[in-house]
Amino acid sequence: MAKKPEIPSLEEQLKRLEEIAQILDRGDVPLEDQLALFSEGMALATACREYLEQAELRVKRITE
């Protein structure tokens, strides 16, 4: 079965967000790159927040 392309999971998004924050912490990348990372990070933070705030338990029942 072919693997379907997946939207990055919440965990992956958070991992990326932390990674970006760490790079910006160190401040050792060119300013242009910092700006790009910053934009990406802010968008990720907003997306994660919205996802978490709107999340609802998805319950599925299975039987024998």
Binding site: L10, L14, L17, E18, I20, A21, L24, D25, G27, L31, Q34, L35, F38, G41, M42, A45, C48, R49, L52, E53, A55
Partner: peptide, 24 residues
Amino acid sequence: TVEDLLYTVDDLRERMIMNVLENV
């Protein structure tokens, strides 16, 4: 919990803003 994550996200957001401004 979701509260833990929201806290983390807000914390990271703040850190990014502070750092970028400071670097600039």
